[in-house]
Design a protein around this nucleic acid. Structure first.
Lengths: 125, 125
DNA sequence: AAAGATAGTTTCCAACAGAAACCACGGAGA
DNA sequence: TCTCCGTGGTTTCTGTTGGAAACTATCTTT
């Protein structure tokens, strides 16, 4: 309807933007990007910081972010081997937006929980 | 830690912010919020606009967004019945961030697809 | 009478997520 | 030497979720 200047329509199936959102609109991906704003981090460091993420999902998400050019993966031949993940320049252009999302979540938590309680009471009554 | 204003750590398990992200960090939720910026919409209208969303997931996502106070659900006793979904004031405070995400996706699509090609070629070679 | 519109729910199956075990490598301690 | 600890993952298994299609229910149109 209101696509005045955009040549892409986000709602269109097969729209490339949708493919991008498929990668970004993910809880773990956002948390990882947010974490890496604080500087490079290693696999087990991320795993310990983002509590309750499983190793499988962490490695899958890191690989997806790497494939999309948002983070880099550097192997240092130490003993034991060290693998460092860091934001790429492209990834860094995204962090303001990611921060905005997490900050919004923090600031509006109370309103959201109030809404949940109201909904659940309505539902029960 | 520093409980001056924020006492939450996004990476902490059981952090309430994480519960909020569980709701927001979802492709369909973001697309629906983005769509509703253009004004209220009915169930089948959203369904037709956001192509390839299934009815089940659409109704589940709408209900979750409603429960979290981001959208409202209004039933008009017409024939057949009309159900209108619209952003709440709380939901409207989120739309700037959502727009930022979708715009970022549109603007950086090409870089992302280039990164994907580079990754896949590296992988194949 | 049958089709079409409204807004969903239900059913079924495939895909995905998470927990735990396992792997390979080498260093350190008993 | 033998076992555990650390690195960074992969594999396996199982429970949850996602998506496609069919079904519900009500009323209008053809």
């Amino acid at each position: 309807m209101t696509t005045t200047e955009q040549s892409y329509n986000v709602y269109e199936d097969r729209c490339p933007t949708r493919l991008v959102l498929d990668c970004l609109a993910d809880k773990w991906a956002l948390l990882i990007l947010d974490l890496l704003q604080g500087g490079p981090a290693r696999f087990n460091h991320i795993r310990r910081d983002i509590k309750s993420i499983s190793q499988k999902v962490l490695s899958q998400t890191l690989r997806r972010l790497e494939r999309n050019g948002l983070i880099s993966r550097t192997i240092f031949p130490t003993v034991p081997v060290t693998v460092e993940y860091a934001l790429t320049p492209l990834g860094r252009t995204l962090t303001d937006t990611v921060s905005a999302l997490t900050h919004w979540a923090e600031q509006n938590m109370d309103a959201i929980f109030a809404a949940q309680r109201a909904y659940d009471e309505r539902d029960a009554g």
